[in-house]
């Protein structure tokens, strides 16, 4: 005959079972074996203009913006991804349409876009990059040049499927 009362044994069993599942349930599933997605940087989206055209070169060139695009988790290079780039350069302000352009990554997930020399603006020589094509989560980057005399700047994306 069963009663509605819990015996001490069932209390201990269910209690410990609850503890085990409860505690382990709090821990996030292991992602540490994979590549973490790149978070957007503060101020990265400032003066963004959606839909910058894909160009061979922004303005007269002379400065190289380079980087890679990979998939979060397995780190696989992502080909054909559109990266938008803009900055305050010798040829225009960040807000100017002519300061904006986009390029696609190659088969190795590498992008390279020639643009005018970036000059210090708002206190730092920096560039802006965006991925916002939709297949992956949107990321805005704002890398800073070590020296304003540099003639290239790198930025790397690790994207997470949207």
């Amino acid at each position: 005959m069963t009663t509605g009362l819990m015996t001490r044994r069932t209390l201990l069993l269910t209690g410990s079972a609850f503890l085990v599942t409860g505690v382990s349930g709090w821990s996030v599933p292991a992602r540490s074996n994979g590549l973490a997605p790149t978070p957007s940087m503060r101020g990265g989206s400032n003066n963004y203009r959606p839909g910058a055209p894909i160009v061979d070169r922004i303005g007269g060139g002379g400065f190289w913006m380079t980087g890679t695009v990979r998939r979060a988790g397995d780190g696989a290079p992502l080909a054909g991804q559109r990266i938008q780039i803009w900055a305050h350069t010798t040829e225009g302000h960040e807000r100017d349409q002519r300061s904006h352009g986009a390029t696609l990554t190659d088969a190795n997930g590498v992008f390279r876009l020639e643009m005018p020399q970036i000059v210090p603006a708002f206190g730092q020589p920096h560039g802006h990059l965006a991925y916002d094509s939709g297949e992956f989560e949107t990321v805005f980057l704002r890398p800073v040049m070590k020296s304003s005399a540099d003639t290239s700047l790198e930025a790397h994306f690790v994207l997470q499927p949207a």
């Binding site: 503060r42 400032n46 960040e94 206190g123 730092q124």
Partner: peptide, 23 residues
């Protein structure tokens, strides 16, 4: 003047969320 030049940078500064520490 900075606001007219680049509004989002000044808004970030005023809200203390700018990437540049001097702001």
């Amino acid at each position: 003047g900075l606001w007219i030049t680049s509004p989002p940078d000044v808004i970030d500064a005023l809200l203390f969320r700018s990437p540049t520490p001097f702001s």
